[in-house]
């Protein structure tokens, strides 16, 4: 099934081996703003992402990193190119298929947490575990992010970092194969940001989940297996880290 011809950027694996989870080739995304202007958010992106790795997408605002993440997560549809998740082609998939993909395979963490304010931490997680085929319990998930003693708090009773960790617990409780984090520390101070990154790191290590973290903060790059640099809708380079730095040691 796998057709190598689709993947001219194969070498971008940069030392990784094994089966890629995602294979993107020549992905473009054009937004039409008004009738005249069009914005090329992505301009021919080729990329493979592998099981169990922690990848950081680094780029300035407007570089196309969020667009790429949204397309990977089945939230957006590319204008051109092809995208495979394992054997399944996501390009051209219909709404129902993308919903099922998000539901079964992807965990999302957003800059603004997006917790449901009317549900406690435990219930926010339960919301997802109740529709997942093989979830962990909400308690296990919250324990994993170190919130075992905040389980019955409502979002308004939690700090920003705690809210973000609930969001991570919610994202990983269904044991997804992919964890997509869009600026997870963007709204947090350093110390809190680090606790959040630790949680991502832990999940990636202990559950073997492919974690993709978007950031414009270069300091975060050193915790990754690979750093993917984006600029102007193109991947400018991919750098493999010799050694992953523990999140705890980061500072910015």
């Amino acid at each position: 099934m796998e057709n190598r011809e689709f993947f001219p950027g194969r070498e971008s694996g940069e030392g990784r081996t094994g089966t890629p989870l995602f294979r993107a080739s020549s992905i473009t995304k054009i937004y039409h703003q008004g009738t005249q202007t069009e914005v090329r958010a992505l301009d021919g992106v080729d990329l493979e992402l592998f099981d169990g790795e922690l990848a950081v997408l680094l780029g300035a605002s407007g570089s196309g990193k969020s667009t790429l993440l949204n397309i990977l997560g089945g939230l957006d549809i590319p204008t051109g190119g092809r995208l495979f998740y394992r054997e399944d082609e996501l390009t051209g998939a219909d709404e129902d298929l993308l919903t099922a993909f998000r539901r079964d395979s992807v965990g999302f963490v957003f800059q603004f947490y997006n917790l449901i304010p009317s549900l406690t931490a435990r219930e926010n997680v339960a919301l997802v575990t109740e529709i997942a085929p093989d979830p962990m319990t909400p308690e296990e998930a919250l324990e994993l992010v170190g919130l075992e003693d905040r389980m019955d708090h409502f979002p308004s009773q939690l700090s920003g970092g705690q809210q973000q960790r609930v969001a991570i617990a919610r994202a990983i409780a269904k044991r997804p194969e992919v964890l997509l984090c869009d600026e997870p520390t963007g709204a947090l101070d350093v110390t809190t940001g680090i606790t959040v990154l630790e949680a991502v790191e832990k999940v990636n290590r202990e559950l073997g989940t492919l974690a993709v973290v978007i950031t414009h903060n270069a300091a975060i790059a050193s915790m990754a297996d690979r750093v993917i640099f984006l600029s102007g809708g193109k991947i400018t380079s991919i750098r493999g880290n010799e050694r992953r730095m523990p999140a705890r040691s980061l500072s910015w």
């Binding site: 304010p117 219930e123 308004s156």
Partner: peptide, 29 residues
Amino acid sequence: PPADFSPSRLEKMGIHRLVPPSFRMALRN
């Protein structure tokens, strides 16, 4: 700021163990 919520009165009576989170969302709202 995020809206303040607390368990609904019905839940304090123990109903929350019986109903899914979506139902609790509705009650609390």
